[in-house]
């Protein structure tokens, strides 16, 4: 059964191609030379190389792009941005894909997205990041009981050094509330 012609699906397709447009604009002049792939320290773990990802972006292949973990594996080392012969802002384009995934809350990228969301929530609440609160909320949110164990040892080490402040002298004024509101207003999603 071919469902691609159904109106709902067509609408979703056009919405999705709108989402991708700004990223396409960033990398339009890619010549597929592969310098980005050759420079990427995380390429070994990617299911699509950066060069392949840019090709998919140019072809508007939404599904393939967001099924891939490639952009989530970008650690923002900026080697590709530095070396791309067309001078394309590739690290930023990776960031833009992360933003789309976060906005659309794509299931595959839940863990990274949750980490970032909790981080930003902590910033909004306190103006600065409370590292301990951040990790606790992150663990609670991913609901993975094994995950905290991975960090338990490190957490204990840090606590022994007095590096994880359990209670932060809170200035409790939410100094960034106006800034966050204004950003939401300008982005039209308040």
């Amino acid at each position: 059964m071919n469902r691609s012609a159904s109106p709902a699906n067509a609408e979703q397709l056009s919405r999705e191609s709108r989402t991708l447009a700004p990223v396409q604009a960033m990398i339009r002049s890619c010549i597929q030379c592969g310098t980005c792939t050759g420079s990427c320290p995380n390429a070994f773990a990617m299911d699509r190389t950066p060069r392949q990802l840019w090709r998919l972006v140019l072809m508007g292949r939404q599904k393939a792009i967001f099924e891939s973990k490639t952009f989530a594996l970008c650690s923002a080392c900026y080697y590709c941005t530095l070396r791309c012969p067309r001078g394309l802002p590739l690290t930023e384009a990776m960031g833009a894909l992360k933003q789309i995934a976060a906005r659309e809350n794509r299931v595959r990228h839940r863990p990274s997205t949750l980490f970032h969301e909790n981080f930003i929530r902590s910033v909004r609440r306190h103006g600065r990041v409370k590292e301990m609160e951040l990790m606790t909320r992150y663990w609670a949110a991913v609901k993975n009981p094994v995950l905290p164990l991975r960090f338990a040892l490190l957490g204990m080490k840090l606590m022994a050094k007095g590096k994880v402040s359990l209670d932060w002298p809170s200035k409790a004024k939410r100094p960034l509330e106006t800034l966050f509101r204004k950003v939401e207003e300008l982005e039209g999603r308040s």
């Binding site: 923002a76 960031g95 833009a96 992360k98 933003q99 976060a102 906005r103 990274s112 997205t113 980490f115 970032h116 969301e117 981080f119 930003i120 910033v123 103006g127 600065r128 990041v129 100094p175 960034l176 966050f180 950003v183 300008l186 982005e187």
Partner: peptide, 17 residues
């Protein structure tokens, strides 16, 4: 009164932020 720069999380959620 400095505040957080957004680290890598702001860029992964909102460009303007």
């Amino acid at each position: 009164d400095w505040t957080c720069c957004g680290a890598s999380a702001a860029d992964a959620t909102s460009h303007l932020l």
